[in-house]
């Protein structure tokens, strides 16, 4: 663990991997909720870091961090969200080629994986989900699409994401869900918050098209 000052009121804590980042994020939330952290504006987990922003005394926090006992995230920790998916994305064949499997096998592999939201970014409610083994990492598309439909289930690098809004995007699209990923009237507005466990459940395309109308 290495804590780097960011301006006068923030600290970027570097960790060996995403699991360690999630574990520190959870510990920071526990301490904040217990009133043991002091005032803080934002706690932002990312791929291998946690940013703590709006801290009065970052140096003091940096000095204290190495003394903390940070339990690893238990597999059963966190809420679970189940997302029904029609695995009919336009990049299914491309992903299958990268994975070295048949297009029909992509859904089974993806839906058989236990995911967790590592962090959010790119857009409100866009979660970066980890869980796929490294060999299933895929590159971004060479040319991003100008419009990716809302609810698209997509892959890039080691991550799975679900587009909470229609937007431009360069991820490989493997399916679609009707789940509402983002609703500002809901608390929290994001369905996929850092630390949440996620399971994808394949829907038969015909059944889904029947219920989509």
């Amino acid at each position: 663990m290495r804590a780097i000052p960011v301006g006068d009121h923030a600290l970027l804590v570097e960790l060996p991997d995403g699991d360690a980042a999630l574990a520190l994020h959870a510990e920071l939330l526990r301490r904040r909720d217990a009133g043991a952290l002091g005032p803080v504006t934002d706690i932002v987990p990312a791929a291998r870091t946690v940013l703590v922003d709006g801290v009065a005394d970052p140096a003091r926090l940096a000095a204290a961090l190495p003394t903390w006992e940070i339990p690893p995230t238990a597999p059963e920790a966190g809420d679970t969200v189940t997302l029904p998916v029609r695995y009919t994305g336009p990049d299914l064949a491309e992903v299958a080629r990268h994975w070295g499997v048949k297009p029909d096998d992509v859904a089974g592999i993806h839906a058989g994986t236990a995911f967790r939201v590592a962090f959010c970014g790119f857009a409100p409610g866009f979660g970066y989900l980890t869980g796929l083994p490294e060999r299933y990492a895929v590159p971004r598309r060479a040319t991003p699409r100008t419009r990716v439909p809302v609810g698209s289930v997509a892959l890039a690098g080691p991550y799975t994401g679900v587009y909470p809004h229609a937007s431009p995007g360069g991820w490989q699209l493997i399916g679609t869900t009707d789940a509402v990923l983002w609703d500002p009237e809901r608390a929290p507005a994001a369905l996929l918050t850092p630390g949440t466990r996620v399971r994808f459940v394949p829907l038969a395309p015909e059944a889904a098209s029947g219920s989509a109308g």
């Binding site: 934002d42 932002v44 959010c120 970014g121 507005a189």
Partner: peptide, 9 residues
């Protein structure tokens, strides 16, 4: 909207 950066806001 400070405080929501962890949701990508």
């Amino acid at each position: 909207r400070p405080g929501l950066a962890h949701l990508g806001v």
